[in-house]
Protein backbone atom coordinates (compact mmCIF):
# COMPACT_ATOMS: atom_id res chain seq x y z
CA UNK A 1 0.00 0.00 0.00
CA UNK A 2 2.68 2.42 1.07
CA UNK A 3 5.32 2.70 -1.60
CA UNK A 4 8.74 2.10 -0.07
CA UNK A 5 11.56 2.78 -2.48
CA UNK A 6 14.57 2.21 -0.25
CA UNK A 7 15.75 -0.29 2.31
CA UNK A 8 15.84 2.48 4.90
CA UNK A 9 12.19 3.25 4.29
CA UNK A 10 11.29 -0.42 4.71
CA UNK A 11 13.26 -0.63 7.95
CA UNK A 12 11.69 2.62 9.15
CA UNK A 13 8.15 1.42 8.57
CA UNK A 14 8.93 -1.91 10.22
CA UNK A 15 10.23 -0.01 13.25
CA UNK A 16 7.00 2.00 13.45
CA UNK A 17 5.06 -1.25 13.24
CA UNK A 18 7.10 -2.76 16.08
CA UNK A 19 6.27 0.21 18.31
CA UNK A 20 2.58 0.01 17.41
CA UNK A 21 2.42 -3.72 18.14
CA UNK A 22 3.90 -3.30 21.65
CA UNK A 23 0.49 -2.68 23.31
CA UNK A 24 -0.74 -5.93 21.77
CA UNK A 25 2.17 -7.85 23.21
CA UNK A 26 1.98 -6.38 26.73
CA UNK A 27 -0.88 -8.62 27.97
CA UNK A 28 0.67 -11.72 26.38
CA UNK A 29 4.04 -10.88 27.91
CA UNK A 30 2.44 -10.13 31.30
CA UNK A 31 0.66 -13.46 31.18
CA UNK A 32 3.76 -15.53 30.45
CA UNK A 33 6.16 -13.50 32.61
CA UNK A 34 3.81 -13.40 35.59
CA UNK A 35 3.14 -17.13 35.38
CA UNK A 36 6.81 -17.86 36.05
CA UNK A 37 7.26 -15.39 38.89
CA UNK A 38 8.06 -16.73 42.31
CA UNK A 39 8.42 -20.46 41.94
CA UNK A 40 8.88 -20.79 38.17
CA UNK A 41 7.65 -24.06 36.72
CA UNK A 42 6.24 -25.01 40.12
CA UNK A 43 3.38 -22.59 39.45
CA UNK A 44 2.41 -24.76 36.50
CA UNK A 45 2.85 -27.94 38.50
CA UNK A 46 0.56 -26.68 41.22
CA UNK A 47 -2.07 -25.63 38.67
CA UNK A 48 -1.93 -29.04 37.02
CA UNK A 49 -2.10 -30.71 40.42
CA UNK A 50 -5.42 -28.98 40.99
CA UNK A 51 -8.03 -31.61 41.62
CA UNK A 52 -9.97 -32.17 38.43
CA UNK A 53 -7.57 -30.10 36.33
CA UNK A 54 -8.19 -32.28 33.30
CA UNK A 55 -11.95 -32.16 33.66
CA UNK A 56 -11.85 -28.47 32.69
CA UNK A 57 -10.38 -29.47 29.34
CA UNK A 58 -12.46 -32.63 29.03
CA UNK A 59 -15.70 -30.71 29.58
CA UNK A 60 -14.73 -28.02 27.08
CA UNK A 61 -13.80 -30.67 24.51
CA UNK A 62 -17.09 -32.53 24.98
CA UNK A 63 -19.11 -29.32 24.66
CA UNK A 64 -17.14 -28.06 21.66
CA UNK A 65 -17.19 -31.33 19.73
CA UNK A 66 -20.89 -31.89 20.33
CA UNK A 67 -21.71 -28.29 19.40
CA UNK A 68 -19.63 -28.43 16.23
CA UNK A 69 -21.13 -31.76 15.14
CA UNK A 70 -24.70 -30.64 15.77
CA UNK A 71 -24.27 -27.21 14.19
CA UNK A 72 -22.58 -28.76 11.17
CA UNK A 73 -25.30 -31.34 10.52
CA UNK A 74 -28.22 -29.03 11.20
CA UNK A 75 -26.72 -26.18 9.17
CA UNK A 76 -25.85 -28.33 6.17
CA UNK A 77 -29.28 -29.93 5.98
CA UNK A 78 -31.07 -26.62 6.54
CA UNK A 79 -28.98 -24.89 3.88
CA UNK A 80 -29.70 -27.74 1.45
CA UNK A 81 -33.40 -27.38 2.14
CA UNK A 82 -33.46 -23.60 1.93
CA UNK A 83 -31.35 -23.46 -1.18
CA UNK A 84 -32.25 -26.45 -3.31
CA UNK A 85 -35.55 -28.00 -2.18
CA UNK A 86 -39.09 -26.88 -2.67
CA UNK A 87 -40.71 -25.83 0.59
CA UNK A 88 -43.92 -23.92 0.91
CA UNK A 89 -43.40 -20.51 2.55
CA UNK A 90 -39.69 -21.15 2.54
CA UNK A 91 -38.75 -17.51 2.95
CA UNK A 92 -41.05 -17.14 5.95
CA UNK A 93 -39.12 -19.87 7.75
CA UNK A 94 -35.89 -18.29 6.71
CA UNK A 95 -36.80 -14.85 8.02
CA UNK A 96 -38.11 -16.25 11.29
CA UNK A 97 -34.76 -17.98 11.71
CA UNK A 98 -32.86 -14.81 10.76
CA UNK A 99 -34.82 -12.88 13.38
CA UNK A 100 -32.72 -14.73 15.94
CA UNK A 101 -29.47 -13.69 14.28
CA UNK A 102 -28.29 -11.04 16.70
CA UNK A 103 -29.74 -12.57 19.85
CA UNK A 104 -27.52 -11.63 22.79
CA UNK A 105 -27.12 -14.68 25.02
CA UNK A 106 -27.90 -12.50 28.02
CA UNK A 107 -31.48 -12.26 26.75
CA UNK A 108 -31.82 -16.02 27.03
CA UNK A 109 -30.23 -16.09 30.46
CA UNK A 110 -33.30 -15.51 32.64
CA UNK A 111 -35.60 -18.00 30.88
CA UNK A 112 -32.82 -20.59 30.59
CA UNK A 113 -31.92 -20.36 34.27
CA UNK A 114 -35.55 -20.81 35.29
CA UNK A 115 -36.27 -23.53 32.72
CA UNK A 116 -33.17 -25.51 33.51
CA UNK A 117 -33.79 -25.44 37.25
CA UNK A 118 -37.49 -26.29 36.85
CA UNK A 119 -36.74 -29.10 34.40
CA UNK A 120 -34.00 -30.40 36.66
CA UNK A 121 -31.36 -30.66 33.94
CA UNK A 122 -29.03 -28.08 35.50
CA UNK A 123 -25.48 -29.34 35.41
CA UNK A 124 -25.86 -31.62 32.39
CA UNK A 125 -23.94 -30.95 29.20
CA UNK A 126 -27.17 -30.67 27.22
CA UNK A 127 -28.13 -27.61 29.25
CA UNK A 128 -25.15 -25.84 27.65
CA UNK A 129 -24.88 -27.54 24.28
CA UNK A 130 -28.44 -26.92 23.12
CA UNK A 131 -28.45 -23.15 23.77
CA UNK A 132 -24.99 -22.87 22.20
CA UNK A 133 -26.19 -24.71 19.09
CA UNK A 134 -29.39 -22.66 18.95
CA UNK A 135 -27.43 -19.41 19.03
CA UNK A 136 -25.03 -20.46 16.24
CA UNK A 137 -27.47 -21.89 13.71
CA UNK A 138 -29.07 -18.71 12.36
CA UNK A 139 -25.74 -17.28 11.36
CA UNK A 140 -24.10 -20.46 10.05
CA UNK A 141 -27.24 -21.14 8.01
CA UNK A 142 -27.14 -17.65 6.55
CA UNK A 143 -23.50 -18.15 5.54
CA UNK A 144 -23.93 -21.65 4.17
CA UNK A 145 -27.16 -20.98 2.32
CA UNK A 146 -25.61 -18.20 0.31
CA UNK A 147 -22.68 -20.48 -0.46
CA UNK A 148 -24.93 -23.36 -1.52
CA UNK A 149 -26.94 -20.95 -3.67
CA UNK A 150 -23.77 -20.59 -5.68
CA UNK A 151 -23.55 -24.32 -6.43
CA UNK A 152 -25.27 -24.87 -9.81
CA UNK A 153 -28.59 -26.73 -9.70
CA UNK A 154 -27.47 -28.72 -12.73
CA UNK A 155 -25.12 -30.76 -10.53
CA UNK A 156 -28.05 -31.88 -8.37
CA UNK A 157 -30.19 -32.48 -11.45
CA UNK A 158 -27.47 -34.65 -12.97
CA UNK A 159 -27.26 -36.67 -9.75
CA UNK A 160 -31.04 -36.97 -9.77
CA UNK A 161 -31.06 -38.28 -13.34
CA UNK A 162 -28.38 -40.78 -12.36
CA UNK A 163 -30.80 -42.07 -9.77
CA UNK A 164 -29.53 -40.39 -6.61
CA UNK A 165 -32.24 -39.62 -4.07
CA UNK A 166 -32.30 -36.53 -1.88
CA UNK A 167 -30.10 -38.24 0.72
CA UNK A 168 -27.46 -39.19 -1.78
CA UNK A 169 -27.52 -35.73 -3.32
CA UNK A 170 -26.95 -34.31 0.12
CA UNK A 171 -24.05 -36.58 1.07
CA UNK A 172 -22.32 -36.97 -2.29
CA UNK A 173 -22.95 -33.62 -3.97
CA UNK A 174 -23.63 -30.95 -1.38
CA UNK A 175 -21.40 -31.93 1.53
CA UNK A 176 -18.22 -32.36 -0.57
CA UNK A 177 -18.86 -29.17 -2.54
CA UNK A 178 -19.55 -27.11 0.58
CA UNK A 179 -16.22 -28.07 2.14
CA UNK A 180 -14.61 -24.61 2.03
CA UNK A 181 -17.61 -23.14 3.85
CA UNK A 182 -17.61 -26.09 6.27
CA UNK A 183 -14.05 -25.26 7.35
CA UNK A 184 -15.05 -21.68 8.15
CA UNK A 185 -18.07 -22.89 10.12
CA UNK A 186 -16.09 -25.42 12.11
CA UNK A 187 -13.50 -22.80 13.09
CA UNK A 188 -16.15 -20.24 13.99
CA UNK A 189 -18.22 -22.62 16.09
CA UNK A 190 -15.12 -24.08 17.70
CA UNK A 191 -13.96 -20.65 18.86
CA UNK A 192 -17.43 -19.64 20.01
CA UNK A 193 -18.06 -22.82 22.00
CA UNK A 194 -14.54 -23.11 23.45
CA UNK A 195 -14.60 -19.44 24.49
CA UNK A 196 -18.12 -19.58 25.93
CA UNK A 197 -18.11 -18.41 29.53
CA UNK A 198 -21.52 -17.12 30.58
CA UNK A 199 -23.66 -20.09 29.52
CA UNK A 200 -21.45 -22.81 31.07
CA UNK A 201 -21.02 -20.68 34.21
CA UNK A 202 -24.75 -20.35 34.72
CA UNK A 203 -26.14 -23.57 33.27
CA UNK A 204 -23.45 -26.07 34.18
CA UNK A 205 -22.95 -24.67 37.63
CA UNK A 206 -19.73 -24.10 39.48
CA UNK A 207 -19.56 -27.44 41.20
CA UNK A 208 -16.30 -29.40 41.08
CA UNK A 209 -15.95 -31.35 37.87
CA UNK A 210 -18.50 -29.15 36.11
CA UNK A 211 -16.17 -26.33 35.11
CA UNK A 212 -15.00 -25.50 31.61
CA UNK A 213 -11.65 -24.22 30.46
CA UNK A 214 -12.67 -20.53 30.49
CA UNK A 215 -13.28 -20.81 34.22
CA UNK A 216 -9.83 -22.24 34.94
CA UNK A 217 -7.87 -19.00 35.56
CA UNK A 218 -10.72 -17.47 37.57
CA UNK A 219 -11.08 -20.50 39.81
CA UNK A 220 -7.86 -19.54 41.57
CA UNK A 221 -9.31 -16.18 42.39
CA UNK A 222 -12.06 -17.63 44.53
CA UNK A 223 -10.16 -20.53 46.00
CA UNK A 224 -6.87 -18.94 46.91
CA UNK A 225 -7.84 -15.29 47.20
CA UNK A 226 -6.15 -13.75 44.19
CA UNK A 227 -3.13 -15.97 43.75
CA UNK A 228 -1.69 -14.02 40.82
CA UNK A 229 1.00 -16.42 39.68
CA UNK A 230 -1.31 -19.41 39.56
CA UNK A 231 -4.07 -17.39 37.90
CA UNK A 232 -1.63 -16.42 35.17
CA UNK A 233 -0.21 -19.94 34.84
CA UNK A 234 -3.79 -21.17 34.53
CA UNK A 235 -4.47 -18.54 31.85
CA UNK A 236 -1.42 -19.68 29.86
CA UNK A 237 -2.50 -23.32 30.05
CA UNK A 238 -6.08 -22.45 29.08
CA UNK A 239 -5.01 -20.23 26.18
CA UNK A 240 -2.33 -22.55 24.82
CA UNK A 241 -4.60 -24.94 22.85
CA UNK A 242 -6.19 -21.98 21.07
CA UNK A 243 -2.91 -20.30 20.24
CA UNK A 244 -1.44 -23.55 18.91
CA UNK A 245 -4.56 -24.26 16.85
CA UNK A 246 -4.50 -20.74 15.43
CA UNK A 247 -0.84 -20.75 14.46
CA UNK A 248 -1.20 -24.20 12.88
CA UNK A 249 -4.34 -23.32 10.93
CA UNK A 250 -3.73 -19.61 10.55
CA UNK A 251 -5.47 -19.15 7.19
CA UNK A 252 -8.61 -21.07 8.23
CA UNK A 253 -8.89 -19.13 11.46
CA UNK A 254 -8.55 -15.78 9.78
CA UNK A 255 -11.10 -16.70 7.14
CA UNK A 256 -13.52 -18.26 9.60
CA UNK A 257 -13.39 -15.37 12.04
CA UNK A 258 -13.63 -12.81 9.23
CA UNK A 259 -16.71 -14.60 7.89
CA UNK A 260 -18.10 -14.53 11.40
CA UNK A 261 -17.58 -10.80 11.67
CA UNK A 262 -19.69 -9.91 8.67
CA UNK A 263 -23.09 -10.85 9.91
Amino acid sequence: MFELRSRTARLGLTAVLVVMVIPFVIPLYTMVYGSFQGRGWDNYRSVMALEGFYTYFRNSIIISVATIALVFLLTMSASFGFSKLRIRNKEVYFWVLMGALTMPEVVLLTPLVILVSEAGIAGTFWAVIIPLVALQIPFTTLLTRSYVDGIPDSLFEAAHIDGAGTWKQFWYVLVPLAKPMAAAIVVLVMINSWNAYLLPLVLLGQADGNMVVTQLPNSFRTQYTDDQTRILAGAVLAALPEIIAYVALQRHFERGMAAGAIK
Binding site: T214, A235, A238, A239
Partner: peptide, 8 residues
Amino acid sequence: APAIMAPV
Protein backbone atom coordinates in the same frame (compact mmCIF):
# COMPACT_ATOMS: atom_id res chain seq x y z
CA ALA B 1 -11.27 -16.37 25.15
CA PRO B 2 -12.09 -13.05 26.87
CA ALA B 3 -12.74 -14.98 30.09
CA ILE B 4 -9.21 -16.43 29.97
CA MET B 5 -7.59 -13.06 29.29
CA ALA B 6 -9.67 -11.09 31.80
CA PRO B 7 -7.50 -11.93 34.85
CA VAL B 8 -4.43 -11.05 32.77
